[in-house]
């Protein structure tokens, strides 16, 4: 009987998220990160005349390195709170999830802490990616 009262009051008091504001922040930060990455790509590809695939690899290395550093000095979580998907979706999200997991488990030592926990959050992405690549890959392979 009380359950219906709870449901009534809870439904009446749902919390609204600032959807519009969050979307704008995600757009701006996400776009800026991609713009910055494009700049790095241009630097390696057009300025240093490095071959395209190598330049892309170098771009990833630089972005991952900067993200890990920002995570280590304690700034990245504040940026992430502000931009939400703007930092989760680019590869910055992947790098941060690995660095933050490794960093947090530091107190349990190198093997049982850092090494064992590094993929705690990033594991899902890699597993999902490989599974999906395998399934879609099979489909593409059969059709060609």
């Amino acid at each position: 009987m009380e359950k219906s009262i709870f449901k009534k009051v809870l439904d009446r008091n749902t919390i609204k998220r600032p959807i519009f504001l969050n979307s704008i922040k995600a757009f701006l930060v996400g776009g800026t990160i991609c713009l910055f990455a494009q700049g790095i790509l241009w630097f390696f590809k057009d300025l240093l005349n490095i071959e395209k695939d190598k330049a892309i690899s170098l771009m990833y290395i630089v972005i991952v390195g900067i993200t890990s550093l920002l995570t280590g000095i304690g700034i990245f979580d504040k940026i992430g709170q502000f931009s939400g998907a703007g930092t989760i979706i680019p590869i910055t999200g992947f790098a941060n999830s690995m660095t933050s997991s490794a960093l947090e488990s530091k107190s349990e030592g190198i093997i049982l802490g850092i090494m064992s926990n590094m993929f705690k959050l990033a594991g899902a992405v890699i597993v999902a990616g490989v599974l999906s690549a395998f399934i879609v890959g099979n489909v593409i392979y059969l059709f060609r």
């Binding site: 959807i19 969050n22 979307s23 704008i24 922040k25 995600a26 757009f27 701006l28 930060v29 996400g30 776009g31 800026t32 990160i33 991609c34 713009l35 990455a37 494009q38 931009s83 939400g84 998907a85 703007g86 989760i88 979706i89 680019p90």
Partner: peptide, 14 residues
């Protein structure tokens, strides 16, 4: 790069 990257993030945020 800015527009497309931003758009993908915006859709994800939604």
């Amino acid at each position: 790069a800015f527009l497309f990257g931003g758009l993908v993030c915006l859709l994800a945020q939604l």
